[in-house]
């Protein structure tokens, strides 16, 4: 079982590595040192049309910035600047 698992796993990893030459990260977009919860135009770029916070995989910002971003979006939601959820559909 152990060897079978290993066998099954190895090519998959290799294939994945071959399929994805890992394109260089787009651009972290931000060079800000403070992400303001009042800047809804900026924050809106980081939420989906349902109002969910976009993941770092999609936003491409740094870990620290993503954390600040999430904090800012949540603060903005509390003050009704951004929706918790969009009821459009």
């Amino acid at each position: 079982m152990g060897s079978k698992e290993k066998k099954g796993k190895a090519p998959r990893g290799k294939a994945a590595a071959q399929l994805k030459p890992f394109k260089k990260k787009p651009n972290p977009l931000d060079k800000l040192d403070y992400i303001d919860y009042k800047d809804t135009n900026l924050l809106r770029r980081f939420i989906s049309d349902r109002g969910k916070i976009r993941s770092r995989r999609i936003t491409g910002v740094s870990v620290q910035q993503q954390r600040e971003l999430a904090r800012a979006i949540k603060n903005a939601r509390e003050m009704a600047l951004l929706p918790y959820t969009s009821t459009a559909r």
């Binding site: 939601r77 009704a80 929706p83």
Partner: peptide, 16 residues
Amino acid sequence: RMAFEIAKKPEGIYAV
């Protein structure tokens, strides 16, 4: 205009 109603009001006067 607020993103959702607060106390049944769709708008609010904001001050910072």
